[in-house]
């Protein structure tokens, strides 16, 4: 019976000893630092974000918010530990060992983080930009420590690890204010090339999304036995790229029909041969 009661009593005694040893003044100060420090950091980060809003890019605003929150939190935690009498040198040593262990265990994640940092400095794109990564097109929703979140055109979300972005060719579709929409127009080899080119020029001039300057690019790309391929490049404001892409093809077809310009179609000659005798 005595033995049964001795264990809890010892534990209570141990806790009692810890409480006796604890410097209550320091503990209250540490608690005060935590209670004031964390809300202050969040308030400051929000304030900075508010000041940055519309002054810097959405990406920079997002990154500065994160930097303030993380750096401030680390500072508060160090101050609290120092206040509680924890030796930081020992803690940092332990943290170093843990970091090395974690580094081996989470190589991919760390590589993603490092690439994320490089991406922040290089700024290949920003939040809100339209990008093409690995043949997938969408709008950048968030640039996080490990990955980039992309809203695809069909409104699904694509998560691309920062590693992949570092390795793949990334096209920023909306970086510059104007873009050229290129397409190949195929006409029959016997069409009057100058007339076709002038019709194409007029189609671009009448399209509501096209720009007059820079001039529409029209050139004969390939010359085949049956058809001619014309490189047709129409300039537009970047924001009008998709509306232009959506309507230009139909406009070319309608105008070619009107002008009697033939788009060559695959023709399969059918030969029935001589009629069989019954």
């Amino acid at each position: 019976m005595d033995a049964k009661h001795s264990a809890p009593t010892e534990a209570i005694n141990d806790i009692q000893q810890i409480f006796d040893l604890m410097n209550w003044d320091n503990a209250i100060i540490a608690l005060f630092i935590a209670a004031v420090g964390f809300p202050l950091i969040y308030a400051f980060a929000r304030l900075v974000r508010g000041i940055c809003h519309h002054r810097v890019s959405a990406h920079a605003e997002f990154v500065w918010h994160k930097v303030i929150v993380y750096a401030g939190s680390v500072l508060v935690i160090i101050t609290i530990l120092d206040q509680l009498g924890v030796k930081l040198t020992t803690l940092l040593g332990a943290a170093g060992i843990i970091t090395v262990a974690l580094g081996f265990a989470a190589q991919t994640s760390l590589s993603n983080m490092v690439n994320g940092i490089f991406m922040f400095w290089e700024k290949p794109f920003e939040v809100g930009d339209m990008v093409e990564i690995d043949d997938k097109i969408g709008f950048v929703l968030a640039i996080d420590m490990l990955s980039v979140k992309i809203r695809m055109l069909d409104n699904s979300m694509l998560r691309v690890p920062n590693n992949v972005i570092a390795k793949e060719n990334t096209i920023n579709i909306t970086r510059f204010p104007i873009r050229r929409y290129d397409l190949e127009v195929r006409v029959k080899v016997d069409e009057d090339i100058h007339r076709v080119m002038s019709v194409l020029k007029d189609i671009a001039a009448k399209n509501k999304y096209s720009l007059d300057e820079p001039e529409t690019w029209i050139s004969l790309r390939t010359f085949k036995d049956t058809h001619l391929d014309i490189h047709y490049g129409v300039w537009t404001q970047t924001k009008n790229y998709i509306p232009l892409k959506r309507c230009l093809g139909a406009e070319i077809k309608a105008r070619f029909d009107q002008e009697g310009i033939e788009i060559p179609a695959l023709q399969v000659p059918l030969c029935t041969g001589p009629a069989k005798q019954a």
């Binding site: 510059f176 204010p177 104007i178 001039a205 999304y209 096209s210 720009l211 007059d212 300057e213 820079p214 300039w235 404001q237």
Partner: peptide, 13 residues
């Protein structure tokens, strides 16, 4: 009709 004045990377609508 819209047009562009300046460089392809920077200009004015």
């Amino acid at each position: 009709s819209d047009s562009w004045f300046g460089e392809h990377t920077e200009g004015q609508l």
